[in-house]
Write a protein that binds this DNA or RNA. Sequence first.
DNA 1: AATGCAAGCTTAATCGATTTAACATCATGA
DNA 2: TCATGATGTTAAATCGATTAAGCTTGCATT
Lengths: 347, 347
Amino acid sequence: MKRISLSDIALECKVSKTLVSMVLNGRGDAYGISKETQERVYQMAEKYNYKPNQIARGLRLGRSNTIGLVVSDIANPFYAKIARGVEDYASKAGYNLIICSTDENVEKEMALLRMLKERQVDGLLISTTFSSSREILSLMKDNVPFVLIDRYFPHTDTNYVVIDNYKGGYEATEHLIKLGYTRIAHMTLTPSHITSLKERKRGYVDALKKYNIRINKKFLCQIPYGDIKRHVYKEVRELLSSPNNVQAIFLANNNITLAFLECVSELKLRIPHEIAAVSFDDIELFRVYYPQITAVAQPIDEICRESVRVLLDEIKNRENPVREKARIKLDPNLIVRESCGHFYRKS
Amino acid sequence: MKRISLSDIALECKVSKTLVSMVLNGRGDAYGISKETQERVYQMAEKYNYKPNQIARGLRLGRSNTIGLVVSDIANPFYAKIARGVEDYASKAGYNLIICSTDENVEKEMALLRMLKERQVDGLLISTTFSSSREILSLMKDNVPFVLIDRYFPHTDTNYVVIDNYKGGYEATEHLIKLGYTRIAHMTLTPSHITSLKERKRGYVDALKKYNIRINKKFLCQIPYGDIKRHVYKEVRELLSSPNNVQAIFLANNNITLAFLECVSELKLRIPHEIAAVSFDDIELFRVYYPQITAVAQPIDEICRESVRVLLDEIKNRENPVREKARIKLDPNLIVRESCGHFYRKS
DNA sequence: AATGCAAGCTTAATCGATTTAACATCATGA
DNA sequence: TCATGATGTTAAATCGATTAAGCTTGCATT
């Protein structure tokens, strides 16, 4: 019942632990262990179904071959996909993933980061909910390699792999404008310090400015995380009520759009006739929905590939801390479908 | 830069490691350490921002406080939700989660299980892709506590927390029958040994039998995992072609339904008029879609709560292996929405 | 015969925590 | 005065692996 350890194999083979370790790590030849002995060791390991204790190994080697992934909610399809991509790229390099959800809660994130450090993760991929880089900087003091993904601090010198959210917001809004809409709302989340959402909003505002459309404060809706559905309902009703009369809406992420569509369905609104919509994030639903939802897609695979690459690179070169940080900003991709139609001006 | 260890604190305080360990584990009083010494230790730990190395701790204590979650694909919304629930319940008990995706690939699952054992996970939650309990039984030999979730082997004595898939399949089909449909198809996945899917199919078949509806082999579609979309297209076209003329369909999981809806949208089919549909699994999309999709919902939170409870229980009582295994079968829940309408017999 | 050297293997330290058993020191009671 | 006990603390073993340094052989060389 007891698990088999190196010593057990050594004992059984009547050789030292050292030798067993060398052989099983494939360095038997390099250390000049005779073929016969090696064979004997392999046989015993096989026979007793020996599996090295990676915890002991990790302790000795000072690494865990584990990386931590911190996101707001792993059940959010965007992060679920990120998790999957990161899992694949990380496992190719022999790393495992500990996944943590923060629920956009700063204290929870701090506790999780602390715990991940205690677990000696070799590195971290973080979609942080922090509003300032202060807490993140403490990671640097602790000398834990990390890469910010999805959200970042432009003026802080850290690795990051993000997308150009400003551009995404701008293009989404511009798309609506070019179709003839002028009364365009934007619905986003609070806490409003989340950098990605801030950038999307800035893109929205700038696009309107660029086309000389007056910014209407009433068209800017902030939905609190945690009670999305109810607030979206309220806001949609107001946006469509007579003095406002919104024609189109730019939705800041898949969560909001989900709530929006649910609302649309219950209010029996027709998209795009009664309200046109563009969403950030591209989830399956948007291809399946009728009408199909125009969306700003994030290059998820690329985000995963790059962030893992940068992180592993950082881990390898941990000793050399004066390197350039990787600052990677990927382009989002506006996928035009049917949810914006074409606005025919009421004459 | 170097991380602070127990010895560092001990050295700094001019006391032994033992004492520091005792104090920081909150057992200072129990061991009769003087208040002043305790205070000194706490201060130093604080000052140097000491964080215990959980890997070393794990090695000594023979546990990792980690559990492994093995599913087919963490990007699948059903499993993403499972992961989230499990994360929450596990973290309450101080456990972390290593998540692995098998892609329904037996070899991959074997490799992952091996790796998780090497990492000394304290327990496993597995939605297995194995077709027989043989591989699973080897886990028992290794004395690793585990709970099968979502899929199980009825005749093998393991812990499991599953739902009554037969009942779900039966009720979904019966629902269609009672609405007047008789030409009812079922679309499910291969590999066909996945127990949950087999049970759903059995429920479908039995419901038809019960209501004396002849089972038509052509109405039973097996879609290969890995190329779902293309095959669903082909099958849908055939089902609706003249000699078949299917009126309703029972879709075996959210993956298939997603592909089905995409197909419906492109073929411009109307639900339920041209084809009625019930799906297994209940994802956001189904509430948002127009028409809203009738679905068999799984009690995800309960699955997570129970499986974590059983697993932690098993871990606690690892020494006593002759206990009764937990065999938990939860009820699914048919949520009637709009996608089945009411069949008016062509006269 | 003494030396050098390679081949093959082992000893012991180490990673950072926990824990058992023991050790001082001092006060108390017989 | 000496045993007893409480109080406060520590030495050393342990978990299971890795690795630097060292130790036997036996053989060839001088």
